[in-house]
């Protein structure tokens, strides 16, 4: 029944189903899914890719029991501050990072399992008026926060057991940083998008602010999702929650822009717009490699191939209600789609 409700709609005469329903998770004790992610978890010498679901006041870890079936391993109960998001930490095992707050992030916590006394724990990483946070390679976390007039951009690293090490400060730009992306192909390069629609580039090793480049006025409040360097150009994948519809490019959800970091000049490479005839706009989404997925204001989820610049699949809202969030799982785990009722569906994308 669930599979029937969630059958993807295909576009442009595609004959192969590239998004297939796999399984569903439903936490009977929770009513609202805030976020979902995947994490590598090792127990009794067995390392598995598990699913993490977050509700406002708890975070649950699910392990695969049998094909298409999941069992809850543990639920961390959080305090009075609601969970806002799960922050994926790349290449880590047995570590889950979460952001909590009211409207804005007020604190970041680590959820972990201690093998010393075989117990599940949580620890406080950072508090403040946090505007943006991203998990980086090598068990690091970068965040931007504001105190009065000052902005702090800080990188914190963790040990394998989840202990926070000494943080490094990056030189902040004048405007507030709203999103980060590591630059693939250039070790130690980090980019961010700011409240006045600029791209900033840092050297993570030295903390230097290397460049500030304006995105343009046509696409306000752009958010960076991915960045990579190729042939001397910096390619940045941006989403445009507030972009206006135009005749030339439709209703753009994602855009790839090529910047020349030496001159700060840029050119648009490819647009990924909402499917033709689909009403509504981009609400939130995620990019993994050349694939982008987003929840639309209609309650549907759209998937794009960013290299082709076109929508390849659409999950309609269905009778059970609209989709609330969408994430890409690690290691080919496919698409994780959450509904407002707390259920999470897994889809294979091929």
């Amino acid at each position: 029944n669930e599979a029937e409700q969630s059958t993807p709609v295909l576009f442009d005469g595609l004959t192969e189903e590239n998004l297939q329903f796999v399984s569903k998770l439903k936490d009977s004790s929770s009513s609202c899914a805030v976020d979902v992610s995947t994490v590598w978890w090792e127990a009794a010498g067995c390392r598995e890719l598990c699913v993490v679901t977050a509700c406002e006041n708890s975070v649950s870890l699910w392990k695969p029991l049998a094909p298409d079936h999941w069992g809850k391993v543990y639920t961390w109960q959080l305090g009075e501050i609601p969970v806002i998001q799960i922050i994926p930490l790349l290449d880590t095992c047995n570590l889950i990072c979460i952001a909590l707050g009211n409207l804005e992030i007020g604190e970041i916590r680590l959820l972990l399992h201690s093998s010393e006394n075989d117990s599940f724990k949580q620890s406080l990483v950072k508090t403040g008026n946090i505007k943006a946070v991203l998990g980086l390679k090598d068990r690091r976390l970068v965040s931007s926060s504001r105190s009065m007039q000052e902005q702090e951009v800080e990188v914190v690293s963790f040990s394998e057991t989840g202990r926070s090490k000494h943080g490094q400060t990056l030189m902040p730009p004048e405007e507030t940083v709203l999103a980060f992306a590591e630059v693939e192909g250039v070790k130690d390069a980090l980019v961010g998008t700011t409240a006045v629609n600029s791209i900033v580039v840092w050297n993570l090793r030295t903390g230097q602010l290397l460049k500030k480049m304006h995105v343009g006025y046509s696409y306000p409040a752009s958010i960076c999702h991915r960045a990579y360097s190729d042939s001397g150009l910096l390619f940045v994948v941006l989403s445009h929650p507030h972009a206006k519809e135009s005749e030339s490019c439709g209703n753009p959800a994602f855009r790839v822009i090529a910047f020349n970091p030496k001159t700060a000049r840029s050119t648009g490479v490819i647009f990924s717009s909402l499917p033709p005839g689909h009403a509504g706009r981009y609400v939130e989404g995620e990019v993994k490699d050349a694939l982008a997925a987003a929840v639309l204001s209609s309650g549907a989820i759209a998937v794009w191939d960013l290299l082709l610049g076109r929508c390849t699949a659409l999950l309609p809202p269905g009778p059970a209600g609209g989709w609330a969030l969408v994430r890409w799982g690690a290691a080919g785990a496919g698409l994780l789609a959450g509904r407002g009722d707390g259920s999470v569906c897994l889809y294979r994308y091929a």
Binding site: Q208, S229, L234, P261, K262
Partner: peptide
């Protein structure tokens, strides 16, 4: 290497900007 719209391109842009930017 150069592009008429983007200006002169450098494959070592990260190292060059790091040597030019204030510490």
């Amino acid at each position: 290497c150069s592009d008429s719209d983007l200006g002169p391109i450098s494959l070592n842009w990260f190292e060059e900007l790091s040597s030019e930017a204030p510490p």
